[in-house]
Measured scan of single mutants.
Amino acid sequence: DRYEFNINGVHFTIDDAEEELIKLIEELLKRGARAEEIEEVIRRWER
């Protein structure tokens, strides 16, 4: 599934997002994580 979200006006799209990654990102968003922090999480996840 495609997952899309915005952080401070920056648009992100993840194709074939796994449910666990989506939950992790949503938790980070609730905590007010910065875009750079979430980008790093996504990079690590994709390795």
Rank of each mutant, 00 (worst) to 15 (best):
E36V: 10
N6Y: 12
E20K: 06
E27D: 13
A33G: 07
K30S: 11
V10A: 05
I14K: 01
F12R: 01
D1K: 15
W45D: 07
E20N: 07
E26L: 11
V41P: 00
I22T: 03
N8L: 04
D16Q: 11
I7S: 05
L28T: 06
N6R: 02
E46D: 13
L28A: 14
E27P: 05
N6P: 02
E36W: 09
E20Y: 06
E26Y: 08
R34I: 13
W45Q: 08
A33S: 11
N6I: 15
E4V: 02
R44M: 14
F12I: 08
N6Q: 14
L24W: 08
E39D: 07
E39Y: 14
A17L: 04
A17T: 06
E26V: 09
T13R: 06
R47E: 13
R47F: 09
E40I: 07
D15K: 05
E27M: 12
G9I: 02
E4F: 01
I25N: 00
A17W: 04
A35I: 15
G9P: 00
H11C: 03
R44Q: 12
R34E: 15
A35M: 12
R43M: 10
F5C: 04
I14M: 04
I22Y: 03
K30H: 12
I7A: 07
H11Y: 13
E46F: 08
E19N: 06
R31C: 10
L24T: 12
I42Y: 04
I25K: 00
L28S: 09
F12V: 07
R47M: 11
R31H: 12
Y3R: 01
I42L: 14
D15S: 06
E4P: 00
A33L: 04
E20G: 14
R31W: 06
I14T: 01
K30C: 06
A33H: 05
V41K: 05
Y3N: 01
G32H: 08
E39R: 09
Y3K: 02
R43Y: 07
G9Q: 02
E36K: 10
I7G: 01
E40N: 07
E19M: 09
N6A: 08
I25R: 00
I7L: 07
E39H: 15
L24G: 04
W45H: 15
A17M: 03
L24A: 12
R44Y: 14
H11S: 11
A35D: 03
E46G: 13
N6K: 04
R47W: 05
E18N: 11
K30Q: 13
F12H: 04
D15T: 08
E37R: 04
N6T: 15
V41C: 10
I25F: 02
E39Q: 11
I38F: 12
L21C: 03
L24D: 07
F12L: 05
W45C: 05
T13V: 15
G9D: 11
E37G: 03
R44V: 09
R43L: 13
W45V: 07
H11P: 05
A35E: 10
G32N: 11
N6M: 14
E26C: 06
E36L: 07
W45T: 07
I42G: 00
F5I: 12
V10R: 04
T13F: 15
E37P: 00
W45F: 13
E4K: 01
I22A: 03
K23D: 08
Y3W: 11
D16W: 15
W45K: 06
N8I: 01
R47G: 14
F5V: 11
G32L: 04
V41D: 02
E18F: 04
K30L: 12
A33F: 05
E39V: 14
E4N: 03
V41F: 07
E19G: 09
Y3P: 03
D16I: 12
L21P: 00
K23L: 14
A35K: 09
E20L: 07
I42W: 02
W45L: 05
E37V: 07
V10E: 08
E18V: 07
I14N: 00
L21W: 03
H11M: 12
R2A: 08
R43E: 08
E46T: 08
E40T: 08
E40W: 05
A35H: 10
L29F: 06
R47A: 13
D15P: 10
E40Y: 05
E27K: 12
L24V: 14
L21N: 00
R43P: 03
E27C: 14
V10N: 05
E20F: 06
E37T: 08
V41R: 05
A33D: 04
E26I: 13
E4W: 03
E4G: 02
R31D: 10
A35S: 08
A35V: 15
E26T: 06
L28Q: 09
A35W: 10
R43V: 12
R31Y: 11
I25A: 00
D16N: 15
W45P: 06
R44H: 15
L21M: 06
I22V: 10
D15H: 08
L24H: 10
D16K: 12
D16Y: 15
I25L: 10
D1T: 13
N6F: 13
R43Q: 12
E27Q: 11
D1M: 10
I14P: 01
R31F: 10
K30Y: 12
T13H: 09
I38K: 00
R31V: 12
E40F: 06
G9H: 01
E19K: 09
G32I: 02
L29D: 03
I38T: 00
E4Y: 02
K23E: 11
E39L: 15
L24N: 10
G32S: 11
R47Y: 06
E19L: 09
R43K: 12
R47T: 14
N8A: 07
D16C: 13
N6C: 06
I38A: 06
D1P: 14
N6W: 15
R34Y: 10
D16A: 14
K23W: 11
N8W: 02
E27I: 13
E39C: 10
R43W: 04
F5Q: 01
L24E: 15
N8Y: 02
I38E: 00
I14W: 03
L29I: 15
E36R: 08
Y3S: 00
E40K: 10
R34L: 11
V41H: 07
E18A: 14
R2C: 09
I42R: 02
I22M: 04
G9M: 02
N8Q: 07
I22Q: 03
F12D: 00
R34M: 15
E37M: 08
A17Q: 05
F12M: 06
Y3F: 12
G9E: 07
H11L: 13
A17I: 06
A33N: 04
L28D: 01
E26K: 13
L29T: 03
I14C: 02
I25C: 03
N8R: 01
I42F: 05
I7T: 05
R31K: 14
V10I: 13
F12G: 01
R44L: 13
N8G: 14
N8S: 06
A17C: 04
G9K: 00
I38D: 00
W45M: 05
L29G: 03
R44S: 15
R34G: 15
I42E: 01
D1W: 02
K23S: 11
K30F: 14
R44W: 11
R2L: 08
I25G: 00
I14A: 01
R2S: 09
F12S: 01
V10T: 08
T13M: 12
E26R: 06
I22R: 04
V41A: 12
W45S: 08
I14G: 01
Y3Q: 01
E37D: 10
L29Y: 04
R44A: 14
D1F: 05
N8E: 14
K23P: 02
E39F: 15
F12K: 01
L28K: 08
L24K: 11
W45Y: 13
E4C: 05
E20H: 06
E46I: 06
E4H: 04
E40G: 07
R2D: 04
E19V: 12
R43T: 12
I14L: 07
W45G: 07
I38N: 00
N8M: 05
L28G: 07
E26N: 07
E26P: 00
R44E: 13
L24F: 10
I25W: 00
I14E: 01
K23G: 09
I38V: 15
A17K: 06
L21K: 02
W45N: 13
G9S: 02
I25V: 08
H11F: 09
E46N: 07
I38Q: 00
E20I: 05
E40H: 08
A17Y: 04
K23T: 10
R34A: 14
K23A: 13
W45A: 09
E39P: 02
T13E: 10
R2W: 06
I42V: 07
V41W: 05
N8P: 01
E37K: 05
R43D: 11
I22L: 04
D16E: 14
I7W: 04
E26D: 08
A33Q: 04
E26A: 07
D15L: 09
A35Y: 09
L21E: 02
F5G: 02
D15F: 14
E4L: 00
I38R: 00
E4T: 03
A17F: 05
H11D: 10
H11W: 15
V10M: 09
D15A: 07
F5K: 01
L28V: 06
R34N: 14
A35Q: 11
I22W: 04
I42M: 07
L29R: 06
A35P: 11
D1A: 11
R2N: 09
L29Q: 04
K30A: 12
R2V: 11
A33R: 04
F12N: 01
E19A: 08
A35N: 06
N8H: 06
E39A: 11
V10Q: 11
A33W: 04
E40S: 11
D15M: 13
R43I: 11
G9R: 00
E46C: 04
E19D: 10
A35R: 06
K30I: 11
A35G: 05
W45R: 07
E18G: 10
R2I: 12
G32D: 11
R34Q: 15
A35T: 10
K30W: 11
E27R: 10
E27T: 14
V10H: 15
L28W: 05
E18C: 06
E19Q: 11
I25M: 03
I7C: 03
T13A: 14
E18K: 10
